[in-house]
Amino acid sequence: MYLTPSMAKLVHEFNKLPGIGPKTAQRLAFHILKISATEARVLASAIIEVKDRITNCPICYNITEDSPCSICKDTTRDHGLICVVEQPSDIIAMEKTRVYKGDYHVLQGAISPLDGIRPDNLRINELLMRIQQEKVKEIIIATDSDVEGEATALYLERLLRTMVARVSRIAHGIPIGSNIEYTDEVTLSKALESRRIL
């Protein structure tokens, strides 16, 4: 397959993105070739802009363009409640619920010795500082349920239980609107384990 040097470079760059294989990279590159120069510039500047503008909130470490972020600034939210998540994208999912009205804390990862990620590499010290400075009533640990997420949850639980009145872990169970018969065995047994008395 023959590509001009500039096309080859673009394909190569797309190929580096997560979830983009060589074929998709090539398709995207040809799409860019088709769009107008203005559109291409808008796209390019959008990429530059996020890199220039976005920083971490100095309180919760979510991505933000203001300092502190809109959630930390919001006086209507319950600042005594902190939900600890691994990634900024987890906040987006939580916010879509519109149920949660507390604050967040983004760890920016999970403990993973195999990847060289230790508690010190996460925003755990920053979380401890927050707990000392603010009046925190409850910490909700909402890390993933893979082994790294569970290890992080366990580490935080043991670290925080003497410092905060309540440390809780989000529940795992059957997705709403799905049939029990189609739920995988592992999820179903977890749901049985954490059943509640009516």
């Binding site: 403990i111 230790r118 508690p119 082994v147 290890a151 366990l154 580490y155 043991r158």
Partner: peptide, 13 residues
């Protein structure tokens, strides 16, 4: 430097 509490977390799991 790895603390025992870090190791504990993995051992418990």
């Amino acid at each position: 430097v790895i603390t025992m509490s870090e190791l504990d977390v993995w051992d418990i799991q």
